[in-house]
């Protein structure tokens, strides 16, 4: 249990995908002008990340790893298909996003209207693919990958909501002409990222 709490804390704060690894920066910067959109994108990321990381973990262990195909017969036991992982992961993500979009539209129309625009965008958000690639690189087990998927998605959500809050306040401040908009946003994210580095000493 302690191991999982540790993993969760690491995924949310220490290894925050947005502020420590700078993944998903494009949508992070583009969708953080307003609080509402930031919350929408954040929720969508948590949702899709918690779904796709464990799903990719199952497929990775069941199809790609060396020896994963041994149930097909002894001749398949030696096959190592890990070189297909990029393609498999992105296909799973694109498909999952599509299915989630249709499911939400059908069963939770209220949520769909608030998430609607962001769901298709997420298929090409590096946070999602990055989460699966880190999962593969660190060789997480299935329970670990569920915790990591949720934690890393949640970390991204926290980061984007925080940035949106700062940017809303920022519109009242007096920023030099050339630095307005994108420039100052980069610098704010830099400062936030430094603040998140404070967590890096924590070990549970």
């Amino acid at each position: 249990m302690e191991h999982f709490i540790n993993l969760l804390i690491r995924a949310v704060f220490l290894e925050n995908l947005a502020l420590a690894y700078f993944l998903g920066m494009c949508s992070y910067l583009a969708c953080s002008k307003k609080m509402e959109t930031a919350i929408g994108l954040g929720l969508a990321v948590v949702f899709v990340q918690t779904l796709t990381v464990p799903l990719n973990n199952i497929l990775m262990r069941g199809l790609l790893d060396e020896g994963a195909l041994s149930w097909l017969g002894p001749t398949f036991a030696e096959i190592d298909l890990r070189f297909l992982s990029f393609i498999l992961f992105i296909a799973v993500i694109a498909a999952a996003v599509q299915i989630v979009e249709m499911a939400i539209d059908r069963f939770l129309p209220a949520l769909y209207t608030s998430l609607g625009v962001f769901l298709p965008l997420i298929a090409v958000n590096c946070v999602i693919l990055g989460g699966s690639l880190f999962m593969q690189e660190r060789d997480y087990t299935l329970p670990e990958s569920i915790v990591f998927g949720f934690g890393s998605g949640f970390g991204f959500a926290i980061a984007i909501v925080a940035l949106a809050a700062i940017r809303e306040k920022l519109s009242y401040s007096n920023v030099p002409e050339g630095l307005k908009g994108l420039g100052i946003t980069f610098i704010v994210v830099g400062l936030m990222s430094m603040a998140f580095m404070v967590f890096s000493g924590i070990q549970l």
């Binding site: 420039g183 100052i184 610098i187």
Partner: peptide, 11 residues
């Protein structure tokens, strides 16, 4: 450190 990339791009 990673944050410096953000400062450099901002500037």
């Amino acid at each position: 450190l990673p944050p410096s990339a953000l400062f450099v791009i901002g500037l």
